[in-house]
């Protein structure tokens, strides 16, 4: 009895989380105007895929989709490289001022990122990077959180392993390449998902630095659609499905790594 009540509560919360998404999916298959009725309908009366056709044929959705995939993958790869190198250095290299440097990085986390938006924008403008993907790629390549995650994980790699490799004459780069990277694979996957999803979902920064419609990512294209087709609810729902579906699939496939990352971030410091 107690267990039944418990599961009813669990299911209720699950429904609150799911209903908006299910309804989005359902509304995206409704014929035009069907969602603007009272009482609201949960299932389409006349199923149609015309909104998806409109998105792909007229509104260039595949282009934005490819843009999103490309830019998210590029940021992910570059930031994995840069952050893993720095995380390794903070975990395993020995140099003066390491602890101070790391602590100041952590302290910098309380500065709201929005403070930097204006100067970074001006800087990129001077460099001629506005309206290019460099404007997203370069500022996104290092992240304090990413360095922190990798460092925490790499700290657990025993020093004896590294010392043995040094005895055999391995250079720091070989140690990074042959020991650290393979052993850090789980956390690298975690960071990759975080970065990929973060870039995929990011909306404000691309909106600021990209002007050319052909370069838009999915979220900006969707926001744009919201402005132009505000009456076409079903069309916007189809656009939303195309925007969230990839991240939902990615999350369900790789959720173990994602959740592990949040737990790591939450446990120490």
């Amino acid at each position: 009895m107690k267990s039944l009540f418990h599961h009813i509560m669990l299911t209720l919360v699950a429904l609150i989380c799911l209903v908006p998404f299910l309804w989005m999916l359902s509304a995206s298959f409704m014929s035009p105007g069907e969602s603007a009725r009272f009482p609201p309908r949960f299932f389409p009366e006349n199923w149609t895929i015309e909104h998806y056709q409109t998105l792909f044929d007229r509104l260039n959705l595949s282009r934005y989709f490819i843009n999103s995939v490309l830019i998210s993958s590029a940021v992910t790869l570059l930031s994995l490289l840069v952050n893993s190198m720095a995380g390794y250095a903070f975990a395993k290299l020995r140099f003066k001022g390491k602890e101070t440097l790391f602590k100041s990085l952590m302290a910098a986390l309380i500065i709201p990122g929005q403070v930097t938006m204006l100067p970074v924008f001006l800087m990129l403008k001077e460099m001629g990077f506005i309206n290019t993907y460099w404007a997203i790629l370069i500022p996104g390549m290092a992240s304090i959180f990413g360095i922190f995650l990798i460092r925490q994980y790499a700290l657990s790699i025993p020093d004896s392993l590294i010392e043995a490799a040094k005895m055999d004459g391995a250079t720091d780069f070989q140690i990074y390449r042959k020991i650290i990277l393979p052993l850090c694979k789980p956390i690298l996957i975690t960071l990759a998902i975080f970065t990929f999803m973060g870039t995929w979902n990011d909306f404000l920064w691309p909106l600021i630095v990209l002007n050319d419609q052909d370069m838009y990512t999915l979220p900006i294209a969707l926001a744009n659609l919201m402005g132009e087709h505000v009456q076409d609810t079903e069309l916007m729902m189809a656009g939303s499905v195309m925007t969230v579906l990839p991240v939902i699939i990615l999350f369900i496939l790789l959720q173990k790594y994602y959740i592990q990352g949040i737990m790591m971030g939450g446990v120490k410091e």
């Binding site: 669990l10 919360v13 699950a14 989380c17 799911l18 908006p20 998404f21 309804w23 989005m24 509304a27 969602s35 999803m197 995929w200 979902n201 909306f203 999915l218 979220p219 969707l222 926001a223 919201m226 609810t233 916007m236 729902m237 656009g239 939303s240 499905v241 925007t243 969230v244 991240v247 939902i248 999350f251 369900i252 959720q255 994602y258 959740i259």
Partner: peptide, 24 residues
């Protein structure tokens, strides 16, 4: 399963969520 479902809103794109919630 419940954990994944509860977590789903976190990973989804805010702009898309806004489209849905404006309608809710």
């Amino acid at each position: 399963t419940f954990r994944v479902v509860y977590f789903l809103p976190v990973v989804t794109t805010l702009v898309a969520v806004a489209v849905i919630w404006r309608y809710i």
